[in-house]
Nucleic acid binder design. Sequence first.
DNA 1: CCCTTTTGACTGACCGGTTGGTCAGGTTGT
DNA 2: ACAACCTGACCAACCGGTCAGTCAAAAGGG
Lengths: 230, 230
Amino acid sequence: MDDPAADIMGATFRALCDHGYAELTMRDIAEESDRSKAALHYHYDDKEGLLIAFLDHMYDRFTDRVGGYGVEGDAELSEDVDATDPDERLRAFISAVLHPPNDGEAREFRTAMLEIKAQAPYQDAFQKRIARFDDFVTETVTELVEAGQSAGTYHEEIDPDHVAQFVLVVLDGAGARHVVAEVPVDCAVASLEDYLDGHLVDANAGRAEPESKASEQLTDGGETTGASDE
Amino acid sequence: MDDPAADIMGATFRALCDHGYAELTMRDIAEESDRSKAALHYHYDDKEGLLIAFLDHMYDRFTDRVGGYGVEGDAELSEDVDATDPDERLRAFISAVLHPPNDGEAREFRTAMLEIKAQAPYQDAFQKRIARFDDFVTETVTELVEAGQSAGTYHEEIDPDHVAQFVLVVLDGAGARHVVAEVPVDCAVASLEDYLDGHLVDANAGRAEPESKASEQLTDGGETTGASDE
DNA sequence: CCCTTTTGACTGACCGGTTGGTCAGGTTGT
DNA sequence: ACAACCTGACCAACCGGTCAGTCAAAAGGG
């Protein structure tokens, strides 16, 4: 409460969820933080500077939340995740990226982030910050796929970077469709796992079932509408 | 030139490419159409009405362009497309959706469309028009998959609607990543075809090669940056 | 065939409301 | 005293939309 900067970041988050990016005004953020407009300009030069600081703030929160799933991350992830298996870590990472903790304002925040992403071509500073999110996901997926190859779980001839690019496409697509068409994000995850099963998992390896569980389709999932930061 | 409505639609398209949706003003459209602001309000009640008419206009153009690939479409598609094979028609349809004719303003227009899509939660009229695009793609893909199953090319146990949903996710994701990260859309298409090969194509059928050409990866495609209407 | 009226298309000037940002000054803790 | 923090009032710029009036072509009537 008594840290102005952190307080303003929280107010920006709430204002962004309530009004979206396009209709976000400095007055909205000011009211949400119980401060005056001028107080915001005391801490940040202008609106653009405030939003950039907000994106940096969200990047820190994002990496803190899902950083543990990478190859260098700490093993203590969750109950039913085998920390030694890169395949399980990859799937857990994808699920974590797609399902942030605050389920309530999930779609609202995702909508605001999509609006900001759409501003990337006009705002060079925005593009750079968004690229940091993407690079983090890309690197994590790439490393996990490489680890899976070293462990013998994944095919050797697959290009890990190519897989990471596709995962990013599906992640962005799932988020976009959640915003635009109110489709739950899990629908895409099921098909993405089909893709992983069919093109990454080495059938000759130990515990992977190649074709049976793959086509286990949930036509309209449990409406676990999580909002990803990315 | 002498049809005011069509002329304004064209001007709206150009203004949208130049300024994006967020910074699109009535003056921009007026200048692009060599008319006054008031002239626009003569033809359309307000800005929202003009944009809605524009979306309807784009829907007509879109269905005219890619409608021929559906099961009911006319067979004359292109040179090297076997009109009798639903699998080839599906892949041609996906490629057509992703690659509109006007390559020059490709990313600019796609950016504006992404901005508009992000407004769907706030503008109910926008959401309805965008849903028309999505429904058209969904139905086309569903019908083509069903046709492929009837022809014996595709597995029978696959849910066509589930496949269509995933195709839509990848299509939206590819478009979004083209806008945000300047990634060429073809990168995603290659992986999507891998998915189709692995989970739709019945290996027991005739001409489909199951595992060899599948992993033919283009790490950074020929930069054929097309802008889809959808 | 000419004159009048109507109508569709359009313009320039203008208005109310909103937004990002500034500024002079005030309060509080150290 | 001094710095960090904050406020209320204010301003220029801009945007969507309105309004009175212009103009040419079509319509209509004698």
